[in-house]
């Protein structure tokens, strides 16, 4: 529990001291990377485009009427699996987005990128800080929210809705088991 307390304190302290004391810090998504693979996967993406995989995945997504429970990470990302359990939508939490401050740029993953849990799938810049966006689960990126490229500030406005970051075909849904539910996450961030 001590570790969690310290993370929450870190979250609060990340904000500029000039800003009013509001919720702060984020983190997984605030990560850096070094020449991440997601920057170089355009060719693989093109290959994927040619197959019917993506269309199939789309149909699968559209067919799912009810989503499963939304899960949260200690690094302040969220992921929501569709009913089939195969495709997850992920983004950063409201808590994280206020910790970042005003987002001015977002770099999204290319389609077809294969990742493991904890890998960088993109990056954001806010208040002179470069930070990576991490994925909570492994799999293949099947869609990115291109609207954010023109309106990165939406990440501050509606991070858990319209400003989702990417959709991922989840390799092993069991990876979600260790994540927090909504109540648990709220408790985690209020500590």
């Amino acid at each position: 529990m001590a570790a969690r307390v310290s993370i929450a304190r870190a979250a609060r302290s990340l904000a500029s001291s000039a800003a009013p004391p509001r919720q702060l810090r984020s983190s997984g998504l605030l990560c850096c990377g070094n020449g991440a693979a997601w920057q170089r996967s355009a060719m693989r993406a093109a290959a994927l485009e040619k197959t019917s995989l993506r269309q199939e995945l789309r149909r699968g997504f559209a067919a799912s009427a009810t989503a499963r429970e939304k899960k949260y990470t200690e690094d302040h990302e969220w992921i929501e699996l569709e009913a089939s359990g195969k495709i997850g939508t992920l983004g950063i939490t409201t808590y994280a987005s206020s910790a970042l401050g005003d987002v001015v740029f977002i770099e999204l993953p290319e389609l077809g990128l294969e990742v493991n849990a904890g890998d960088a799938i993109g990056a954001v810049e806010s208040v002179k800080s470069a930070s990576d966006i991490l994925t909570p689960v492994g799999g293949t990126i099947v869609e990115a929210n291109g609207a954010l490229e023109d309106k990165p500030a939406n990440v501050n406005r509606d991070p858990e809705g319209e400003a989702w970051i990417a959709r991922i075909e989840v390799r092993d849904a069991k990876e979600l088991d260790g994540l927090m539910g909504k109540e648990e996450y709220e408790k985690f961030t209020s500590e």
Binding site: A10, L14, S17, R25
Partner: peptide, 9 residues
């Protein structure tokens, strides 16, 4: 430095 306790100032 550690993220814990870091501020931009």
């Amino acid at each position: 430095s550690p993220r814990d306790g870091f501020t931009r100032d």
